[in-house]
Design a binder for these strands. Sequence first.
DNA 1: AGTTAGCACTCATTGCTTGTGAGTGCTAAC
DNA 2: GTTAGCACTCACAAGCAATGAGTGCTAACT
Lengths: 343, 343
Amino acid sequence: MLTERQRMILNVIVDDYIRSAEPVGSRSISKRPDVGYSPATIRNEMADLEELGFLEQPHTSAGRIPSHKGYRYYVDHMTPWNSIAPAELNTIRTFFAEKLNVMEQVIQQSAMILSHMTNYTSILLGPEVFHTSLRHFQLLPLNETTAVAIIVTSTGQVENKTVAIPAGVSVSEMEKVVNLLNSKLVNVPLFKLKSRLYSEVAQELERYTSHYEELLIVLDSVLDSEHDHQVYLSGTTNMLTQPEFKDVDKVKDILDLLAETPTLMKMMTPTAGESGIQVRIGTENDHQAFANCSLITATYSLEGESLGTIGILGPTRMEYARVMSIMEIISKDLTTLLSHWYK
Amino acid sequence: MLTERQRMILNVIVDDYIRSAEPVGSRSISKRPDVGYSPATIRNEMADLEELGFLEQPHTSAGRIPSHKGYRYYVDHMTPWNSIAPAELNTIRTFFAEKLNVMEQVIQQSAMILSHMTNYTSILLGPEVFHTSLRHFQLLPLNETTAVAIIVTSTGQVENKTVAIPAGVSVSEMEKVVNLLNSKLVNVPLFKLKSRLYSEVAQELERYTSHYEELLIVLDSVLDSEHDHQVYLSGTTNMLTQPEFKDVDKVKDILDLLAETPTLMKMMTPTAGESGIQVRIGTENDHQAFANCSLITATYSLEGESLGTIGILGPTRMEYARVMSIMEIISKDLTTLLSHWYK
DNA sequence: AGTTAGCACTCATTGCTTGTGAGTGCTAAC
DNA sequence: GTTAGCACTCACAAGCAATGAGTGCTAACT
């Protein structure tokens, strides 16, 4: 569809614009040593590229900037990305070599590394509760009326919830219930817990205790595992350093959206079927506030099943090649780290 | 020190400037129905107030704006604050009337309420681990080499840490250790755990197990309770709506500081001896980035001991009276809520 | 046919001037 | 002690010309 020369020019423009954030003119392109054409020729090609929708002009007689379509083409036809210095690679490697033994810490630290290395905002989605199972269940009375329910998952995550004890339930009864749950529900994937509660536990529970119904309601609420899919953000303020966001109003919408955990979670959940590194440019993100942003996501996984997502949010004028290299390395390292832990 | 009239004029200026964010001129003051003086008289008084350091002039022939000293005087001599509508009070009351049974949720929701009602940034410091004690200790093997240590506190908080099991320690040995810890350490305040570990547990541990030293190291690290003093932020982007921060560069430093949890914790820790609502205006915050901000803090407590802090960060031009009323109500309601729970 | 030089044209940006108005300080009168 | 009057200051907006980067088009060149 595009001639070799057009491709080359488009590439130069995107590269240049990513670096400078200023519209790129024909003269500056022509002056580059690897471009052997005069400004006039470049201009002709640029006019064509604009007509084809790959470039835009902020106003007549300004240079050109890439359109979303232009970025898309750039990303899709990029030379295999390897634009990351060995020193940086080392930073990542030594980080993952360190003994970090709490999942949450690893995720949080990864977010920090990502945002520091890229100078963009990083968004990490914690391990999917979906693919983990119950390791242990416990109910611990705090006083006569309340207790803490503790759920330990196979990955070592601990979730807890304070619940009210139905009046009249004795300590020994509670113990029986806990034992029953442990015998029946251990190793059941978290997302199946509730259905199992009714299919396997409910009947037996009826024989054990007189407060069958109340207890069932409590247990139901406990196992309603809020899928504690934590979202970790780092470097949100990096957004502010980008010249395209020097206007506070624009940045406000973005930061507001970043504070909305549920929305963020939805955006970060990988679209089924897709794998590897995904790039959503400008309006490809279906959120208005991100119309001038690009979101790059990758998933990390355990035994082939994706556990969570890492993401980088920046302006559409983003260092795609660089960010994508970094993301690939980190997602892979996360994956291997997890497999070392839990296999 | 100030005459009645000067006090009145200062008050009017601060009120006006809080509302409009524009320098206040003599004419506009004179026009207010409750002020019976001509602009000229006001001007004379304003000149005096400026000389005394209560007012500032952004430039010659502009109106006056309050200096830090002016705000300080305003806050210290404010008429008892009650500037909060009954409807708003209701919002708070119904919130605290709802059955919220997880501490963390309460804190987080309180942060939301605070930032929403004030349109400033709210900062909440979670309950001090200092004043809570151990309720239960548990060690749960995940596989041959790792285990999760779970600490439940008297307030129902659950903290967990994944640890490596020293090679050669059997399951039955672990059980003994756990039992020992529970018998010796339950009801000990968290911050005393480590010293007790050595004073009371260590010797007996030596008799129980052959891997005395390795285990002690592990337990030490577990009880090194990271005092999980969480900081909850809400409404950080409200900072961006203030006209004084329409310049991105200024706001960046503030947001960066807000992302630095340790610094924030230090700022929010109440200075010993002080109690009630504290106001730090402008440079009274010893952080450069907050030179144009005011931080209002209050503590919530249980049985007279302060558990945590709630804070509001806004521009120096802040609705002090309103914010202070809201903070007082919420800190008191938090206090009573806690006492209902844990008494 | 593809490439390039030349040229007129566009338009954001900058610097300059000028006018306007809000607000002040001072003085003299009340 | 208070106020009216007046000259003065200064930020800000509007208007205007100069600048220059960049374009589109045409005609000449290879």
